[in-house]
Amino acid sequence: MSDLAIDGKVPRDAMAQRRRRVARRDRWATVVSILVVAVVIIGWCVGSGLRLVSPLFLPSPWRVVHQAVVIARNGYAGATLWEHAAASLLRVMVGFAIATSLAIPIGLAMGINRFVKAIVHPVLEFYWPLPPLAYLPLVIIWLGIDETSKIVLLTAAMFGPICMAAQAGVRSVPIERVHAAQSLGATARQVFLHIVLPSALPEIFTGLRIAMGVGWGTLVAAELVAATRGIGFMILSASNFLATDIVFIGIAVIAVCAIGSSMAVRAMERVLVPWKGRS
């Protein structure tokens, strides 16, 4: 109890003061962020409204919103906006699910066993930094032009960051934590299940968030060849007709999806790893 009495009173006031100061700074930062967004939108309105830039290059915000409503109802390039979005979302999510279920076990195994690492490491190091667009032709030559090659491209792009993160997660486990479990009688399997796996979770979630970003970043490349649906396909076909407004809509949809899925991973992280940053 003496601990409480000692670090109780005085610091608590200082803490509250510090919290208020941080809260004030955060509010200020939010105001600045909102201002920046407002300036960009106003600049856009003024730029297109005064015809400073040709509508071909910069359509007005109203035109983009109007066009979004039209293609949501009537469709563009053979499908409605929702169908395009759903097709892309499905591809990214399937790729994410496959990448996660492969990369986490392989990354963990690499972190634990040096032989597994010796086998996987050179392959991973070689292909991971490559832009997916560079190996897209190979994937198409090998797997054809249908859905499989698109999913494989997305999976390959997302595999790297998750695998690296899982491996780094294992290596970040404090050895004292392992020793503590062993001196309580833990077997190798129990050490893995009760110590290594949960200790690696924060790193794994960082990898999942990065992979989500990489996935949406690779989407347009994945839908480059022989797609009939998808936001990336929609952007590509709109660009052929210089339909800048549709390109804008496509970019906005990808941004919303990317931010949404990143927030979903973050929410899952808060539930599963509430101790992150506190130990």
Partner: peptide
């Protein structure tokens, strides 16, 4: 090797944060 017949209290905090 390590075993439950020898309990260890460590210098650093080795509690499970979760």
């Amino acid at each position: 090797g390590p075993g439950a017949d020898r309990g260890v209290v460590f210098q650093q905090d080795t509690l499970l944060p979760w």
